[in-house]
Write a protein that binds this DNA or RNA. Structure first.
Length: 442
DNA sequence: TCTGGGGTCCTAGGACCC
DNA sequence: TCTGGGGTCCTAGGACCC
């Protein structure tokens, strides 16, 4: 049986999630904004038709949105994450091996399915996901991940295909590949595109026919792999068990510029708190954090400053209190007194790159942290926050929500319909003429 | 006159992805 | 006023070692 992978993804996923809970959004232009209400990161076809580009800064399209009655939403990651989990639960009914590639994309192994039955299965998958979660999807099938991605791209753009496309057959595949620009291939970005154009490569078929060895010169081993994948030779395995994460970052732009040390320290403390929560959730720990903050490239004329500093810890930890202290130290040791033209900082963050499982990490000989006591406290705090919502219990130094002058904007966020009891939608049913239902008397 | 060679590890920066 | 956030992988080059 030949190898076959399917790539299924949600159409305009974030927008579709919003539509599931508000039918009035169907048929009208909808966009979802990035963190801080910065850029458009999801657009329905109606919004794309108005010329709204991926990543367009909101302040530049605000007027257009008002005029064209585009419905605009802040991101609601809690909702999207939960809808994603629901969709994947459906995928697992159709395939034993599923790789969750991103919040809205998964690869399914269909190698066990007979070739002539794959399209039918894909159609069934689409309609089941639609029925059970409300999310519209497209499915692409191919012998490699790169070809499955390409098939998905075709399924999205050719309406006659009904949302599914199978590139398993080599002859049929060759016909499609001559008509697709090479920039649509997964892994070919702006820089690679420019190099390929110089080599006279315009279409996906051109790239497939490129000699892989010299291609490596221009595109590194990554490009060589893509060529093999386009020829149907798999170089990228299906990763069913997610790899352990290597790094973790919490970074945010400020809603307004920050000029005070106290505000900056409070911001990185909050980021460190969130970072620690993520580490504990995954059972990971870090021996050092990088703290950074900088002014904005968009503030023309203002003095520029960019700071990045590493703070080492005595041993690996995921303790919020330890990481907060380290984050504040990172600011304190690099802070410079403001002059007559103060630096107006626009963004700050806390980054780790050396994550290890906490239980496998060596203890410090000197200056060891009190893991037992700290661990118990963190466990109690996490339990409270899981039960009553994030931010219910926070270390005092992380700052209270109400006092955050730098806080991120989410002015148009919808309720967390599926994960907060207080925010579930209320359905009112009107009685119509029909059989009356009464409690049985016997 | 003439100044080895090969290996590992680490980091910074580039590129790409969603 | 207003321009996201969080990841991965690859390569080159320096430090260091024998």
């Amino acid at each position: 049986m030949s190898r076959a992978l399917a790539l299924i993804d949600g159409n305009s996923f974030y927008c579709s999630c919003e539509r599931v809970f508000d039918p009035k959004l169907v048929g009208v232009p909808v966009i979802v904004l990035s963190n801080n209400d910065g850029c458009a990161v999801a657009r329905t076809p109606e919004a794309k038709a108005l010329g709204i580009k991926m990543g367009a800064p909101y302040f530049m399209i605000r007027e257009l949105c008002r005029r064209e009655k585009v419905r605009v939403f802040s991101s609601n990651y809690t909702l999207y994450g939960d809808m994603s989990a629901r969709a994947n639960a459906v995928y697992r009914q159709f395939a034993k091996d599923v790789e969750i590639y991103s919040i809205d994309e998964s690869f399914l192994d269909l190698s066990e399915v007979r070739e002539r039955e794959r399209l039918e299965l894909a159609r069934d998958l689409r309609s089941t996901v639609r029925r059970w979660t409300g999310i519209p999807t497209c499915v692409g099938i191919g012998p490699t991940k790169t070809l499955a991605k390409l098939a998905n791209h075709i399924a999205k753009r050719v309406p006659e295909l009904g949302g599914v496309c199978d590139l398993s057959d080599e002859n049929e595949r060759a016909m499609w590949l001559v008509g697709i620009p090479v920039g649509e291939v997964w892994g070919i970005g702006r820089a690679s595109l420019a190099k390929l154009e110089a080599l006279g490569v315009d279409t996906v078929a051109d790239l497939r026919d490129l000699d892989p060895r010299p291609a490596r010169q221009a595109l590194t081993v990554v490009g060589e792999r893509i060529i093999h994948e386009l020829r149907g030779r798999a170089c990228l395995p299906l990763e069913i068990v997610p790899a352990r994460r290597k790094g973790c970052a919490v970074t945010r732009s400020f809603a307004s510029r920050v000029t005070e040390q106290a505000d900056l320290e409070q911001a990185v403390s909050a980021h460190a708190t969130r970072l620690a929560e993520k580490l504990r959730r995954d059972g990971l720990a870090t021996t050092q954090i990088t703290v950074f903050y900088h002014t904005s490239e968009h503030d023309r004329g203002d003095p520029k400053r960019s700071v990045s500093t590493v703070v080492h810890l005595p041993e690996a930890t995921s303790d919020s209190l330890v990481l907060i202290k380290a984050a504040r130290l990172g600011v304190a040791k690099t802070w410079r007194e403001q002059g007559p033209e103060p630096w107006r900082y626009s963004k700050a963050g806390v980054i780790t790159t050396d994550l290890v499982p906490l239980t496998e990490s060596p203890r410090a000989l000197f200056g060891a942290l009190d893991r037992e006591r700290g661990g118990a406290l963190m466990a109690a705090m996490d339990a409270c926050n899981r039960r009553f919502g994030r931010g219910t219990v926070v270390p005092a130094r992380a700052g209270l929500e109400a006092k955050r002058t730098w806080a991120t904007k989410f002015e148009m966020r919808t309720p967390r319909y599926t994960t907060r009891l207080a925010e579930v939608p209320v359905v009112t049913a009107m009685a119509t003429a029909g059989p009356e239902i009464r409690p049985s008397s016997s």
